[in-house]
Design a binder for these strands. Structure first.
Lengths: 124, 124
DNA sequence: TTTTTGTTATAGTTTTTCTATAACAGTGAA
DNA sequence: TTCACTGTTATAGAAAAACTATAACAAAAA
């Protein structure tokens, strides 16, 4: 899986990394059990510090997307216990949809966009 | 319009403020031409610094939600020129939907949530 | 044994966020 | 005119977050 970082983005590097990996899981480019590159390795290929990658992995671990296996490193492992966190999503969507509404983007357009994006994430 | 700030949130105060006002516009609590409280006034009622409010207003101005009238202060004024910025929304949705997909939130659930939120923003 | 894992510690720089005073020009009302 | 109120700007500082840099450790694999 290719991980690209935008150094001009305002988003923190470790957040970009986290987002990329979550999107990779959703898009099935990363599957349960897959091993992520080691923190040093990924840091070198991207050209950033080891600790920045480590922070991204730590966040992913806390959020339940990854487990750390001493021998293999960071492994994709989705924690079933914290599935279905809808409230968190509602708060995030509220801001985005408010902006959309102000900018005259219709509900239909949003639905279409959702479908389009969800398609890339394997249908349902 | 009531503006609440969560001082325990990780989100920057001025971002929370901006989001609240955008949501207020979407929910029709704030309408074209309505005047926002002065930076000093709002700062005092919330209990934060004047410059933090000013930064929120400045961002809102740059994003085209507000114009500044010398005599009246910050006035809701949505810039038609920058309507329909769908690409920005796509990028934001991609991350949220990736997380949703990983957490087994179905496309149907997301659509339902969209409708629910959009309802608060005056239907379409 | 050697290498590779994540992890931890320490330390430093830079940027962002938030606060604190102060002053300025434009505007409206007394 | 004088007064009070707008946003705006300047300057300064404190605190937190983000990122980097070395270094070392134990566990595990080759």
């Amino acid at each position: 899986m290719l991980i690209e970082i935008d150094f001009n983005s305002e988003e923190a590097l470790y957040i970009q990394l986290r987002n990329r990996i979550i999107m990779g899981i959703a898009a099935n480019e990363l599957q349960e059990g897959d091993v992520l590159p080691s923190v040093r390795q990924l840091a070198e290929t991207i050209g950033i510090n080891m600790h920045t990658v480590n922070k991204a992995y730590t966040v992913l671990k806390q959020e339940g997307f990854v487990k750390v296996d001493r021998r293999r490193g960071a492994v994709i492992a989705i924690d079933a216990a914290r599935l279905e966190n809808v409230e968190e999503m509602r708060r995030e969507l509220q801001v985005i949809l408010a902006k959309a509404s102000c900018r005259n983007i219709s509900r239909q357009e949003v639905h279409a966009l959702i479908d389009e994006i969800y398609e890339g994430y394997g249908g349902n």
